[in-house]
């Protein structure tokens, strides 16, 4: 498995460097929008974004069916799946440290960044961000990188359409459905922040466990 991680980190070198730039971007963005605790928001955004960027980048680097080459190297099918999940963690760690570096640098140059760099609750939020999106891994393993790209575009389109529908429903007075959805969101937001995040963690753990099990099953039967 070690060599698969090395492969992913070597192929994703540009994305890892870009990850630190993302942190800088998030700091500046939230600074401009007047967010009061943007250090905390940035560390969560950066960690989750870099983790997924690295995993997706690793999937995209399979354009020449390179998986076939790497699966012929000394690794079991199960370890190959483990590698993808470990990579997610490594990406998050790099994003996390990257945002810390930017935070430190900004403070060093006297930029008034609100502290602290992160709070314990942020770690929970990062974990949620990683777990909830984990179905992307079995999707890639089953259908390949091309299908993954299409899947992501479709997913984004669904979110956009959903938002438009909800906004349109509110604007044109179709209150029923929209207010029901917003009502659920409001009730969720009314919960204490720790309870909210622990609830999400529970959901995330279930989703991630299912993603892992499906990934192992897919790879066990897969012909490379």
């Amino acid at each position: 498995m070690k060599f698969l991680l090395i492969k992913d980190l070597v192929t994703q070198k540009p994305n890892l460097a870009l990850g630190t730039l993302y942190s800088l971007f998030f700091y500046l963005l939230f600074m401009l929008t007047g967010e009061t605790s943007y250090s905390s928001v940035t560390v969560v955004f950066s960690s989750v974004a870099v983790a997924w960027m690295v995993v997706l980048g690793s999937a995209m680097s399979d354009r020449g069916e390179t998986q076939k080459f790497f699966m012929a190297l000394p690794v079991s099918r199960g370890r190959m799946v483990d590698g993808k999940f470990v990579l997610l963690g490594i990406g998050a760690l790099i994003g996390f440290l990257g945002s810390g570096l930017v935070y430190g640098a900004l403070r060093l140059f006297g930029v008034p960044v609100p502290g602290p760099w992160f709070q314990p609750l942020d770690l929970l939020k990062i974990l949620n961000g990683l777990l909830i999106l984990s179905p992307i891994i079995p999707l890639y393993l089953r259908f390949g990188q091309a299908a993954l790209r299409v899947g992501l575009v479709v997913l984004m389109a669904v979110f956009v359409v959903l938002q438009v529908v909800l906004l349109a429903a509110s604007a044109f007075g179709i209150e029923g459905a929209a207010s029901a959805v917003f009502g659920v969101l409001d009730r969720f937001k009314a919960l204490p922040v720790t309870v909210r995040n622990l609830g999400l963690l529970a959901v995330g753990l279930v989703v991630a466990a299912a993603s892992y099990a499906v990934s192992r099953l897919v790879v066990r039967r897969k012909d490379f």
Binding site: K7, T11, S61, R63, G64, E65, T66, Q67, K68, F69, A72, L73, P74, V75, S76, R77, R79
Partner: peptide
């Protein structure tokens, strides 16, 4: 699988190295 494949060298029908 891993121990067995350590003993294996291979050349595939097409180049599958990361470009």
């Amino acid at each position: 699988p891993a121990a067995a494949k350590e003993k294996l060298g291979f050349v595939l029908d097409e180049c599958r190295l990361v470009a």
